[in-house]
Amino acid sequence: MPVSEYVRSLREQVGSSYLLLPGVTAVVRDGNRFLVARQRDSGRWSLIGGGVEPGEEPRAALQREVREELGVDSNIIRIVGAYGGILLENVYPNGDHVGYVTVAYLCSLDAAAFALDEDEVLETQWVTLAELSELDHHEWIEQVMRDAVQ
Score class of each variant (00 low, 15 high):
Tyr18Met: 15
Arg78Ile: 03
Asn75Phe: 15
Trp140Asn: 08
Ser16His: 14
Gln143Asp: 14
Ala111Asn: 12
Leu10Gln: 09
Asp30Arg: 15
Asp119Ile: 01
Glu120Ile: 09
Gln13Ala: 13
Glu68Cys: 02
Val91Gly: 01
Ser16Phe: 14
Trp45Ile: 07
Thr102Met: 14
Ala26Glu: 10
Ser17Val: 09
Thr102Gly: 02
Asn90Gly: 01
Glu5Val: 13
Ala130Thr: 11
Ser74Met: 12
Val28Asn: 12
Ile76Pro: 04
Leu21Trp: 00
Val7Lys: 04
Arg78Asp: 04
Val101Asp: 10
Met1Leu: 02
Glu65Cys: 07
Tyr92Ser: 07
Glu89Met: 15
Val27Lys: 01
Leu135Thr: 03
Gly55Glu: 11
Asn75Met: 15
Ala104Tyr: 13
Val121Tyr: 00
Arg67Ala: 08
Gly43Asn: 03
Asp147Arg: 05
Arg33Pro: 03
Glu142Lys: 11
Val52Pro: 01
Arg44Phe: 05
Val52Asp: 01
Arg33Gln: 14
Val7Met: 07
Gly31Asp: 06
Gln150Glu: 13
Asp110Glu: 13
Arg78Cys: 04
Arg40Met: 05
Ile48Arg: 03
Glu139Leu: 12
Tyr92Asp: 04
Val72Leu: 06
Glu69Asn: 03
Ala113Phe: 15
Ser17Leu: 11
Thr102Lys: 13
Trp126Cys: 05
Ser46Lys: 09
Glu118Val: 06
Ala82Tyr: 10
Asn94His: 03
Pro2Lys: 08
Cys107Asn: 09
Asn90Met: 13
Ser9Arg: 14
Ser16Met: 15
Arg64Ile: 07
Gln125Met: 06
Ala61Lys: 08
Phe34Ile: 01
Pro2Val: 02
Glu120Pro: 07
Ile48Asn: 04
Glu142Asn: 09
Val101Trp: 11
Glu57Ala: 08
Asp147Ala: 06
Val27Glu: 06
Ser133Tyr: 11
Gly49His: 11
Thr124Met: 08
Glu131Met: 06
Tyr105Gly: 07
Val36Asp: 05
Leu122Gln: 04
Arg33Cys: 03
Met145Trp: 01
Asp73Ile: 02
Ser42Gly: 12
Leu87Asp: 14
Glu5Gly: 09
Tyr18Trp: 14
Val7Gln: 02
Val80Phe: 04
Pro54Asn: 12
Ala113Val: 15
Asp73Leu: 10
Gly15Phe: 06
Ile79Ser: 09
Asp30Thr: 01
Leu21Arg: 03
Asp96Gln: 14
Glu118Trp: 12
Asn90Tyr: 13
Tyr100Leu: 14
Pro2Phe: 04
Gln125Gly: 08
Arg8Tyr: 09
Gly99Trp: 04
Val3Gly: 06
Glu68Trp: 08
Gln143Asn: 07
Phe114His: 10
Ser108Cys: 06
Gly99Val: 05
Ala112Lys: 15
Glu69Val: 00
Val72Thr: 04
Thr124Tyr: 05
Glu123Tyr: 07
Asp117Cys: 02
Gly81His: 06
Arg11Ala: 11
Val28Trp: 11
Ser42Asp: 02
Leu88Pro: 02
Gly43Asp: 10
Gln39Asn: 11
Ala26Asp: 02
Asp73Asn: 08
Ala111Trp: 02
Leu132Ile: 01
Gln63Thr: 10
